[in-house]
Amino acid sequence: MTALLSRPGRVAAAFSPAHIGRAATLALHDELALAPKPGLVSFEDTGSHDDMDAHTFMRSLLALRSYFTHMAELGAAFAPFDALERSGIEAEARMLAATGGINTHRGAIFMLGLLCAAAGATQADGLALSADHWRAALQQHWGAALQARCARASVLSGGRAARQYGLRSASEEAALGLPVLFECAVPAWRAAQARGLSGQRLQLQVFFQIMAELDDCNIAHRGGLEGLAFARTEAQRFLMNGGATRTEALTDAREIHAAFVARRLSPGGCADTLSAVCLLHRLGALG
């Protein structure tokens, strides 16, 4: 952590770009380490995937370390959106080189990259790195560009699924200031902490809250609207039955994981959002 001198009336920047980048990399590791996690790769198994495992994800996140730091630097300089986008494209190429062409973190490159830039901008604006300031910086500095980006027709599977089924795409979610992250995952994290949850159970509770809310286009790509409805129903059932506070919560989550694997469902958008809230937590933005 690096404290920087501030002008009178401004809050000193608490985190250097390198610290922000390191926190983003660790947040990706937090998401990977969580298990059971319906349909997704963890250190326990490969979930609904035949072409990747935890080692693939580790190679990918290590290849992205410098990217997150660079995005925080760009954000602190209030760089235009096209500079952020170029950095993301370069990072995606490094990811694919590290994984042999497998898409492990494309969504996280977009989402966590934007958050690293917004963290840098928040501090450059002289503001404390709270969740509210973080979201405001994203919308103030790049909101218009993100809105314009929504007009592009995505060639990616998630974007195509969003158009086909009338869902909110990752681009639209970002243009709205990441509402599922800031209006669902952040309150869910705080509520879980207030209930005494921590570690695996806290993250599991938040993950299911995200899955009950998010238009996860990765699920829709694999399972259509039926698959998305199944995922939401399972998430809501888990939460209504008491969530991660129950003794049997982990057993229940493993059964849901097995059902997702049987249907080949993979909630990658939920995983990205969990990584994002882990990043906010690691940088002290959740109180």
Results as ranks from 00 to 15, higher is better:
Glu173Trp: 01
Cys150Gln: 14
Ala191Asn: 12
Ala175Gln: 04
Arg163Ile: 02
Glu172Ile: 08
Ala188Val: 08
Ala161Cys: 09
Phe182Leu: 08
Ala170Tyr: 08
Arg195Ser: 15
Ser154Gly: 12
Pro179Ser: 10
Pro187Asp: 11
Gly177Gln: 11
Arg152Pro: 00
Arg152Asp: 12
Val180Pro: 01
Leu181Thr: 09
Arg152Ile: 11
Glu172Trp: 06
Ser169Lys: 02
Ala191Gly: 08
Leu181Ala: 10
Leu197Cys: 09
Ala151Tyr: 08
Gly166Cys: 10
Cys150Asp: 10
Leu181Pro: 10
Val186Ser: 12
Phe182Ile: 05
Gly158Gln: 04
Ala175Phe: 02
Ala185Thr: 10
Gly159Ser: 09
Gly166Tyr: 05
Ser171Ile: 04
Leu178Arg: 01
Ala153Val: 14
Ala170Asp: 01
Gly158Glu: 04
Ser171Lys: 09
Leu156His: 15
Ala151Arg: 14
Val180Glu: 06
Ala175Ser: 15
Gly159Thr: 05
Val186Gly: 10
Pro179Thr: 08
Leu156Asp: 15
Phe182His: 08
Ala162Tyr: 05
Arg195Trp: 03
Ser171Asp: 15
Ser157Tyr: 08
Val155Pro: 04
Arg149Leu: 15
Gly166Asn: 09
Ala161His: 03
Leu156Asn: 14
Arg160Met: 14
Ser154Pro: 13
Ser157Pro: 00
Arg195Asp: 15
Ala194Phe: 05
Arg160Pro: 00
Val155Met: 12
Gln193Phe: 00
Gly166Pro: 00
Leu176Ala: 15
Leu197Lys: 06
Trp189Lys: 02
Ser169Cys: 07
Tyr165Ala: 01
Ser169Trp: 03
Phe182Met: 08
Ser154Lys: 03
Ala162Glu: 05
Val186Pro: 06
Arg163Ala: 13
Pro187Asn: 11
Ala185Asn: 09
Ser154His: 07
Glu173Cys: 04
Gly196His: 05
Gly158Asn: 04
Ala188His: 07
Cys184Leu: 12
Ala153Gly: 00
Glu183Arg: 13
Ser157Trp: 03
Arg163Thr: 09
Leu181Asp: 10
Leu176His: 12
Ala191Ser: 14
Cys184Lys: 14
Arg149Met: 15
Ser157Val: 11
Pro179Glu: 06
Ala151Ile: 01
Ala188Asp: 08
Pro187Tyr: 12
Ala161Arg: 03
Ala153Phe: 04
Ala191Arg: 13
Gly166Met: 09
Ala153Thr: 14
Ala162Asn: 11
Gln193Ile: 08
Ala174Pro: 04
Ala153Leu: 11
Ala153Asn: 05
Ala174Met: 13
Pro187Ile: 12
Ala174Leu: 12
Gly196Pro: 01
Tyr165Gln: 00
Phe182Thr: 03
Val155Trp: 06
Leu197Arg: 08
Leu167Pro: 02
Gly159Phe: 00
Leu178Glu: 03
Glu183Gln: 14
Gly177Tyr: 09
Leu197His: 06
Glu183Phe: 00
Gly159Asp: 07
